[in-house]
């Protein structure tokens, strides 16, 4: 279930991407964080306790919104623009 609620920007072009293998779409001008959290309520599990996290500061400071890309990369969701055909994975395994 979505965490963020869109109040505007409803008419911007759709941007297709996949989240954990499922086809989704965001809107032009979305960050990766917005694109994911308008359909899901988490971005990752925390490193140690495995608790769900969904970002915090949205300005590139807290480092709580890193998500995986299917090519093995990591992106900081709040400061990465959504691009068409991005393949994103929410982090599902704690570090230890």
């Amino acid at each position: 279930m979505a965490l963020l609620k869109r109040l505007s920007r409803h008419e911007l072009p759709l941007v297709p991407f996949t989240l954990n293998g499922e086809a989704c779409s965001g809107r032009a001008g979305d960050t990766v964080l917005t694109a994911i959290l308008t359909q899901s309520d988490r971005l990752r599990l925390s490193d140690f306790s495995g608790d769900p996290r969904a970002g915090f500061c949205q300005m590139g400071a807290c480092q709580d919104c890193w998500v995986l890309t299917s090519d093995g990369g990591r992106v900081r969701a709040c400061s990465t623009a959504l691009k068409p055909e991005m393949s994103l994975r929410t982090i599902t395994e704690p570090r230890s």
Binding site: L3, L4, K5, R6, L7, S8, R9, T31, T34
Partner: peptide
């Protein structure tokens, strides 16, 4: 600040 960015930059409320 994050709540404000969600609204201003992304047109979203945090809930």
């Amino acid at each position: 600040g994050g709540s404000q960015i969600a609204l201003k930059s992304q047109g979203c409320a945090i809930g």
